[in-house]
Write a protein that binds this DNA or RNA. Structure first.
Lengths: 344, 344
DNA sequence: ATGAAAGCGCTAACAC
DNA sequence: GTGTTAGCGCTTTCAT
């Protein structure tokens, strides 16, 4: 044991009476070690409680088997589901995770974040922060100097970027079409914040479905929340004021749909007959709302899994100096029909 | 730039016509560098886009300014809130996070997890996995060989361990006492899984409050869910069968309380007058349930913050070879009274 | 105020 | 099959 109290490869080597190189061979399961020597070294490793230093390995091999993950808004289910998916897949593929949580979604001060990841020798970066406001402006400046591959989650298609997103436009459209099929004529919308790309996509889907149903989309009121239940309540009240004759509402996420239904109950509006409600997210809980919520299910866990798969492929390509084509992957959401929209 | 494409301290030194030590001094803000030299080196660092290698630093300094965080169940709000708190505080204190997500709460195969953290030179470990079943048995074996401090979240008090937990017993007691005060006489309980320490504590709190109210706790039925809304529905149905005269129910978490209320609505049981309901967790959404849910609020974010604060103190002590007394920190939850329990 | 040498713990490349 | 040498990128120590 050295003076700092750590058992090193040298300690094992000395104890075994071999050179550290031989120990290294055992550690890396190289074939060219005598079976006896191997066995003996393994025993010594065990008895000394030796653990190889991944840091020293990273330094010499110039790779760490670590992925940098940048996220934000862990207080919401979506981002943490995605993180969960990332963690599961990373484990499967033998990568560790260095986690950075941004203080806010529209944080633009990304330089130190990226630097700290690079400094720690991550092999690739997963940018799991949704596109909000101008939080992608840094890309032009910094991306060219990035020495490792990077993949983005949940943002608009851009050339030469690897991106994995859910198709929010189609999701919003499906939600609204479903309301039309249920006989709704006057379908309002409570959206997420307009600086969110996802919110804008869902709005566009809603508008597209209205237009296809022969309704002039511009004339239909909508209001804006910030994804929280609290904001949903306020946004829905104001929507009701503007659009009292509304008979269906597409709500930008399940949490806001929850409070929309609470307000409706308070006012004696019957769901689904007076007002049909569709949410977006597919939270497990939404099946237990009152009434059970029809929603657009998006698989955020899978989003994370795919991101890891892609970044690892990019890392492998990068190390072999192969060029790899940037991909834009679009996951399709699905409609879950439940009581809040189903008219007998 | 070296053959591997990374800008190193040597590149900066050569460019500046100084030795790498001088550059190192600039990097570490040492006083003994001539102002001109410092300025020039800083410029060169900027223009070359040089980023010091945290890996090389970790190796020589034998510390990484990285915390290992072990968690599980990120699909639930609680663990991700805690992680969020950990991330916020870690950032504030200048630590990075190496994240491990266990495949299940009762995962006992912790050896490789701990080893991988140690191999990566983490300065300390936050074990943010709730105590479930026998998932603490490894402590005896492995803790003695741990070369870095470790702190545990959400587990029973044990001598010589540093622990931060919420006081679930008191929380369960407060919930039940509140129901008693509302005039409930027959207070059932839908608990979490019995192999969870937190679930058992909440049960004990419920029993204690019943006893103090002069009710024989043993005779009062309870059923068991697994924290999910789905399981809550099933557990509540079975509780109703056993205890049809029930006029109040303490539910082990908010998600199960959600489905409890859905079932109650389905069966025409009026809340709170026929049945008063209290949950546990303090999810932001529970204020928007129908009716708004009375619950026991626990601050999981703060739990994470405190854990980081403590582990950093332990790390500092450890490096200065100071002994530090293990602490058991018990956070108090609070009652949030809302419509689901409030009888006029 | 600056530089030279040593070394953190490990592996790659080569020698024997 | 095993050992030797060199070096990853940085900081520490000591010298000038």
């Amino acid at each position: 044991m050295n003076r700092r109290g750590r058992v090193t490869i040298m300690d094992v080597a000395k104890e075994a009476g071999v050179s550290k190189q031989t120990v290294s061979r055992v550690l890396n399961d190289r074939p060219d070690v005598a079976p006896d020597t191997r066995k003996q070294i393994k025993d010594i490793i065990e008895s000394l409680g030796y653990r190889p230093s991944a840091v020293a390995r990273s330094l010499i091999q110039q790779r760490s088997f670590t992925l940098g993950v940048v996220t934000a808004g862990l207080q919401y289910l979506g981002p943490s589901q995605t993180l969960n998916g990332i963690a599961d897949k990373a484990k499967e593929l033998g990568y560790a995770l260095l986690l950075i949580v941004l203080p806010s979604f529209d944080s633009k001060d990304t330089r130190p974040i990226v630097d700290s990841l690079i400094a720690r020798q991550v092999d690739g970066i997963i940018w799991a922060v949704q596109e909000v406001g101008e939080n992608r402006v840094w890309l032009q400046d910094q991306l060219s100097t990035l020495p490792v591959p990077i993949i983005f989650l949940t943002m608009a298609k851009r050339e030469n970027f690897s991106i994995v997103s859910v198709d929010n436009f189609t999701g919003g459209k499906m939600a609204t079409q479903h309301l039309v099929e249920q006989g709704c004529q006057k379908i309002g919308h409570v959206s997420g914040p307009l600086d969110w790309w996802e919110a804008r996509q869902r709005i566009a889907g809603w508008e597209s479905a209205l237009t296809e149903a022969g309704i002039e989309a511009d004339s239909v009121p909508r209001t804006e929340g910030n994804w929280s239940s609290r904001s949903g309540a306020a946004a829905f009240k104001s929507l009701l004021d503007k659009y009292p004759q509304m008979d269906g509402v597409f709500v930008g996420n399940d949490q806001m749909a929850l409070s929309v239904m609470q307000i409706a109950h308070d006012r004696g509006i019957r769901i689904p007959n007076d007002l049909a409600v569709v949410g977006f997210d597919g939270l497990a809980e939404s099946a237990y709302f009152w009434p059970a919520l029809t929603t657009i299910n998006q698989n955020q866990h899978e989003l994370g899994c795919i991101a890891v798969q892609e970044i690892v492929a990019m890392i492998d390509a990068h190390r072999e100096e192969r060029k790899i084509q940037p991909k834009f992957i679009f996951l399709q959401p699905e409609l879950l029909v439940r009581g809040s929209s189903l008219r007998k």
